[in-house]
Amino acid sequence: MLGSLFYALHVLGAVLWVGGMVFAILVLRPALSVLEAPQRAALHEAVLKRFFLLIWHAMPVLLLTGYLLLFGWYGGFRGAGWHIHVMHFTALLMAGVFLTLVTGPWREFRAARARGDAAGAAVPLERIRQLVTMNLGLGLVTVAIAAWGRFGG
């Protein structure tokens, strides 16, 4: 029963994180082209603030439930299949990319916006896009590997 709860929380965390990145990169960003640059930057800031807050909660839940499942269900790394090892590796990479994003370009973007420096905000915003896109790729690979390995592939 507890294992099912951990697994459900793990999957929900992954859906929120990866789904949010899909929305941000493939839906929101192209749609923002109808706005003027200052409005685009303001909307980016508001959306990313909410999304990054969500990830600050989803990421630890994902990592914690992943470890609880790894050691409670599989008996540790030795008992886990190749897909679990790959998920573990990509999860750590994704967490590192996210931490890099929020402590670097996100902080720079917000500081530039607070100063009213639109040109200065554009550079970190582009870096945010690149890092979110990188994490989206890692997230999609992780989901595909999880699904593939789950059924003995």
Score class of each variant (00 low, 15 high):
Glu36Leu: 10
Ala37Gln: 13
Ala37His: 12
Arg40Gln: 07
Arg40Tyr: 06
Ala41His: 09
Ala41Phe: 10
Ala41Pro: 03
Ala42Gln: 15
Leu43Ile: 12
His44Val: 08
Glu45Asn: 13
Val47Arg: 12
Val47Tyr: 15
Leu48Asp: 01
Leu48Gly: 01
Leu48His: 04
Phe51Tyr: 10
Leu53Val: 04
Leu54Cys: 01
Ile55Asp: 05
His57Lys: 11
Ala58Gly: 05
Met59Ser: 08
Met59Ala: 09
Leu63Asp: 09
Thr65Asn: 15
Thr65Met: 15
Thr65His: 14
Tyr67Gln: 09
Tyr67Pro: 00
Leu68Asn: 09
Leu68Ser: 10
Leu70Ala: 10
Gly72Phe: 07
Trp73Ala: 14
Trp73Arg: 15
Trp73Ile: 12
Trp73Lys: 15
Tyr74Arg: 07
Gly75Gln: 09
Gly75Pro: 06
Gly75Val: 09
Gly76Met: 12
Gly76His: 14
Phe77Ala: 10
Phe77Ser: 09
Arg78Val: 12
Arg78Ser: 12
Gly79Val: 13
Gly79Leu: 13
Gly81Leu: 07
Gly81Thr: 08
His83Met: 07
Ile84Asp: 08
Ile84Pro: 00
Val86Tyr: 11
Met87Ser: 08
Met87Thr: 08
Met87Ile: 08
His88Leu: 15
Phe89Gln: 11
Phe89Lys: 10
Phe89Leu: 14
Thr90Lys: 00
Thr90Arg: 04
Leu93Asp: 06
Leu93Thr: 05
Leu93Ala: 06
Leu93Glu: 06
Gly96Arg: 11
Val97Gln: 09
Phe98Trp: 14
Thr100Glu: 09
Thr100Lys: 12
Leu101Gly: 06
Leu101Asp: 06
Leu101Ala: 06
Thr103Leu: 05
Pro105Gly: 01
Trp106Met: 12
Arg107Val: 06
Arg107Trp: 08
Glu108Arg: 15
Phe109Gln: 00
Ala112Leu: 08
Arg113Val: 03
Ala114Leu: 05
Ala114Asp: 02
Asp117Ser: 11
Ala118Met: 12
Ala118Tyr: 11
Ala119Asp: 10
Gly120Lys: 03
Ala121Asn: 02
Ala122Tyr: 03
Pro124Leu: 07
Leu125Tyr: 10
Arg127Pro: 01
Arg127Val: 01
Ile128Cys: 11
Arg129Val: 07
Arg129Ile: 06
Gln130Cys: 11
Leu131Ser: 08
Leu131Val: 10
Val132Arg: 06
Met134Ala: 15
Met134Cys: 11
Met134Trp: 15
Leu136Val: 02
Leu136Glu: 01
Leu136Trp: 04
Gly137Gln: 04
Gly137Asn: 04
Gly137Ile: 05
Gly137Tyr: 01
Leu138His: 04
Leu138Lys: 00
Leu138Glu: 00
Leu140Ile: 02
Val141Arg: 03
Val141Asp: 00
Val143Cys: 03
Ile145Thr: 06
Ile145Gly: 00
Ala146Ser: 05
Ala146Trp: 04
Trp148Ala: 04
